[in-house]
Write a protein that binds this DNA or RNA. Structure first.
Lengths: 205, 205
DNA sequence: GTCTATATTAAGATAGAC
DNA sequence: GTCTATCTTAATATAGAC
């Protein structure tokens, strides 16, 4: 019994995820979610009470999927910055190829409701920037990298990795290339981004 | 008479711009646009026939505002790459501080309707990447910069400039800073981004 | 727990007076 | 050209049978 309930609940959540990530909160239709799940609308309300609650469940799940990816850069103590940059870039790009709608979904909905980030901050697993900051400062002092602000490095890293997926339609239009060529370009970026940033923080002799 | 018409039409467009850029196509309400403009819903239909058409007018206007900013980097023949990167970064960040909703609006709606970029491509003033590409190749051959793919440099430049505004709520959350501190960080980036990219394409001796 | 049928509300769009 | 009133449709949500 309990298993059945959990199963359906989960099935709805997965279906809702697909629709919300394609259409956003406002564009999504409960009917479409029901169709996607192969059940009727009433069931959605039975399990999640309202569209709003269903949406928030989807959003929380999506964020909890991407947060560890970010947090790994910030909190892992065992690798130096050079290696962290490489690791993040590599794993993030592979990760996002599997979840292409995710970055747009997160960004879009955070722009719709600026305070929602506070709800997320309160949750366990929210990325902790202060550890990354401490590491940057430490490596600067040890003379491993040249002086740089941790905030800027962090913003660079995320911008270079995330934006090209967010703006894929725009770039394809500018560069006049198709999906395949764009995917190759993204694959190339694993090397490209690491080189750019490592070259930047490295101390010149 | 004609002036009156044009004036109201324009007033509606400006009001619609505000609402659409805050709420997106799906989230915007015709009633809200009418309120913003201080008129009634019927007027919106009188001038723009449907929500779809009104939206497209707003989008076209928004895009025509940002396209020249991009095109300036791509097509200006009189400055070398080093200077172009500086100019673009400087002027883009200043520009976007004045139009904070614009990047999110463009990106979001292009993700909703991937084919819409084709409509834009057909328009006059659409940024022409091939000129930029030619310039990069030329400067590489002349030994002014080290070998690099024009596409990647272009993606870097736009990512570093645009994403931090798109993801402002996210970054404020991660870095735990307020609007003022974030604005300062963005101001700093004018220098920061130029340095990062110029350092990257410069030939090491 | 799952369905069909229906209530309720709200949005886009139009008719028609002025 | 501008308004009020209204039509139509569609979406969220609920009631109630099974």
């Amino acid at each position: 019994m309990k298993d059945e309930k959990t199963q359906t609940e989960d099935h709805i959540l997965n279906s809702a995820e697909k629709v919300f990530q394609r259409k956003g909160m406002d564009g999504a239709r409960m009917q479409e979610i029901a169709n996607e799940a192969g059940i009727n609308k009433a069931m959605l309300h039975y399990y999640y009470r309202s569209k709003r609650f269903l949406f928030e469940a989807v959003f929380a799940k999506a964020f909890s999927l991407i947060a560890p990816e970010i947090d790994r850069v910030l909190s892992d103590d065992n690798t130096d910055l050079f290696q962290k940059i490489k690791n993040f870039t590599n794993s993030y790009i592979s990760f996002i190829q599997k979840h292409p709608y995710l970055p747009n979904f997160i960004i879009q909905e955070l722009n719709r409701d600026a305070d929602f980030i506070k709800v997320l901050q309160a949750k366990k697993g929210f990325p902790d920037f202060s550890k990354f900051e401490a590491q940057v400062e430490k490596e600067v002092q040890e003379g491993k990298i040249r002086p740089i602000k941790a905030e800027q490095l962090f913003v660079h890293l995320l911008s270079l990795n995330i934006f090209p997926f967010l703006a894929a339609p725009l770039f394809k239009g500018f560069l006049k290339i198709d999906d395949k060529a764009y995917k190759d370009l993204m694959e190339e970026r694993k090397e490209e981004i690491s080189n750019l940033l490592i070259n930047y923080i490295k101390i010149k002799e």
